[in-house]
Design a protein around this nucleic acid. Structure first.
Lengths: 180, 180
DNA sequence: GTTCCAATTGGAT
DNA sequence: GATCCAATTGGAA
């Protein structure tokens, strides 16, 4: 968790329980409605039945060379650890991580440095989710408690997230609650 | 770090770099001055020369039995791991943790469960800092970037924090960046 | 009744 | 320019 939140929690307990001699702020009514945010489809609680992952306009404007491929039924699981740093995209060879729901191109998978679980997690997220999905989704699909006025983002596919977490836990040797 | 912040960082990059088609909120000017908070001594940037730790009105209204003692020059470092769960406060025997700046009563130190680094950190924080210090201080002394209108809390003594972090790292076997 | 979770933010590194 | 840091919040576990 980290010292920061621990201190914050202690501070909350202190202020709530004992004195409340200084209400930190008057609410000041900062409920900006933001109708343009709620104009999105807002599919409410996304169950695990949404694995369609519509990828409209995947803009190639980024300098990242990431060449993803969403053809899922490739069965190359043997994760050959041989050297491949070739520039040409090696077709659509993917390996399945975790329980087998998330597919990662071998070109990306073999380039991941497992000594940094943050970078490994980040690279896996970028590999299985398009950028605009990461930008518009969150882990839990819940709103930030610190910003009740902001609309909640949709929830990332829990099974894909689980596969990523499981992979990082196994390869990096860190507990799951740290990865999340 | 955790998936949450990683996703948030990706989302920020996405919104900042490409579109900015939806400015998330108008600033709405939430600068409530809070003069009663700034009425505290506000020693500004607390350097490592402030180890006085004024403890006015330590209210005994909490149910915690924590009996701290700020007499510092006790030299009992041998940390006897014998069983002591006695109710009576065993004088002011303390052990020095980390580099020796932070003192923790042996009664508390021996009761810490090191299998949970969050609880260990929390217990050590509560042992070396009074509650009202934890409530009014933060790790870095900086303001929350998410809440620019709130006044920054003072900074906890870096040497005492370092001792706590070092102890947790050694006893719990977790890296330092995780503890912080 | 604590403790944990994670969403959001801007500055720091 | 990408990544890390930590401050704050309310509900969940």
């Amino acid at each position: 968790m980290g010292i920061t939140e621990i201190i914050a929690a202690e501070a909350l307990l202190q202020l709530r329980g004992i004195g409340k001699q200084s209400p930190p702020e008057t609410p000041t009514f900062q409920e900006t409605e933001d109708p343009e945010i709620s104009a999105r489809p807002s599919t409410a609680t996304v169950d695990e039945s949404s694995s369609s992952m519509t990828m409209e306009e995947e803009g190639p404007t980024m300098s990242r060379k990431r060449s993803r491929s969403c053809t899922s039924e490739s069965s190359d699981q043997s994760s050959s650890d041989e050297f491949l740093h070739a520039l040409e995209p090696s077709g659509n060879n993917v390996i399945r991580i975790g329980d087998g729901n998330a597919n990662v191109p071998v070109e990306i998978y073999t380039s991941i440095k497992w000594d940094s679980y943050t970078m490994a997690t980040r690279n896996l997220l970028s590999a299985v989710f398009p950028r605009h999905i990461l930008a518009t989704h969150s882990l839990s699909g819940k709103r930030s408690p610190a910003f009740p006025g902001k609309a909640a983002k949709e929830k990332l596919d829990p099974k894909l997230v689980h596969d990523i977490v499981k992979t990082v836990v196994e390869k990096c040797g860190v507990p799951e609650n740290i990865v999340r």
